[in-house]
Design a protein around this nucleic acid. Structure first.
Lengths: 197, 197
DNA sequence: TTTTTTGTATACCGTTCTGTATACTTTATG
DNA sequence: CATAAAGTATACAGAACGGTATACAAAAAA
């Protein structure tokens, strides 16, 4: 018989993932010990290892959950940030600016994680690469809808701008990098799309 | 009396810094243990701690040395890559492309390090920030020489493009991101500078 | 009510971490 | 030559690491 879930779902598991996400994002994965996650989450070590076979499995669960949540919020903000495809492409950078302003902004978790895992074969790195690929694919769709003559090329340019703004904001702790990127993005979009605003 | 230096200088110290740089760049700082550095360098632990009081001091020495070397090579390549300021600004991205193609390219060491150290007060992070500031200052000088109407603004845009290309190349392991950035850079430069090629 | 699940609390294991201590060797200088 | 710096080799200390074991409590399902 199917086990009945409580209202909160598997709350301990969610609590562990949430706590681990915060610590990984702030201090990095290698610098975050299991004991710290256990203390911060208020969950026992035994329970942690009942849900995750190893630290790596916890890392994977954190990345997978954040992948879904982050892409979802990204798309939601972009779509509510503009009606036309062109406006939505620009809304990408408005979203970025709000993201950079958050007090718990420590750069892109996936970029930071890739910096800690150079081996291309590890599943950890694969999740990070996949996230970037999917975001770029979404931007490319918007470019197509905006009538870009070369949607793929424009998407690569815009994605590159977004990465640059994110990293520069992380270093300088200044959200204005989003405005700089947006300014460039506007020029690029207007250069290669049919005006349909 | 002043101690006479051997031809090779303090060779053990240099060997330690060189080995540590390779390991830090590839695997990150927290993931690299002192024992690994000792084994890889062929230097004794005792000798390491005779030169550096702690791992953090070794990290600082590595970052400081790499800061000097990297900026030096960057400027050398840019200046030999073009005669006019405009050509030199574009040569930045030719340099980047060659950098991305190197087999030991694991992204920007300073960016990766900032991802591991979120505390803004640590001297480790300060060195990374200072490096980025100096590179941007150098680009701004080139923008001034190129006759940009807003050298500061253009430098911010170009620096952002360089960061984006670097991170994207690190993720995708594809050096073409430099060409994408160069394409955008060309448009930005021609948009805001008096033509003087 | 009994049983199973899910959790807590805590102690522990073997390994690895940064950093130190001890004893011996090389080497260059005074 | 004598000496002192700088190195090797190796063992060790104390803490933190990832992960396991034992004993027990709460709560829901059978």
């Amino acid at each position: 018989m199917e086990r009945e879930r409580k209202k909160t779902g598997s709350s301990k598991r969610e609590q562990l993932i949430k706590t681990a996400l915060e610590l990984f994002a702030k201090n990095g994965i290698h610098a975050t010990g299991i004991d710290t996650i256990v203390e911060q989450s208020g969950v026992t070590k035994k329970t942690l290892y009942a849900h995750f076979r190893s630290k790596e499995e916890l890392v994977l669960a954190v990345l997978r959950q954040y992948d879904g949540l982050a892409r979802n919020e990204f798309m939601r903000c972009v779509e509510s940030g503009g009606k036309t495809p062109r406006a939505r492409l620009l809304a990408v950078f408005d979203f970025a600016e709000r993201w950079f302003q958050q007090s718990n902004f420590y750069g892109c978790l996936f970029i930071n994680t890739i910096g800690e895992y150079s081996d291309n074969d590890t599943p950890i790195r694969q999740i990070c690469k996949e996230y970037k690929k999917l975001v770029k694919g979404y931007i490319r769709e918007l470019c197509q809808q905006a009538g870009a003559t070369d949607p793929q090329g424009l998407a690569e340019e815009l994605a590159l701008l977004l990465e640059g703004a994110t990293v520069t904001a992380q270093v300088s702790q200044n959200a204005k990098t989003a405005k700089i990127a947006k300014r460039v993005a506007k020029a690029l979009i207007d250069r290669t799309t049919a005006k349909n605003e």
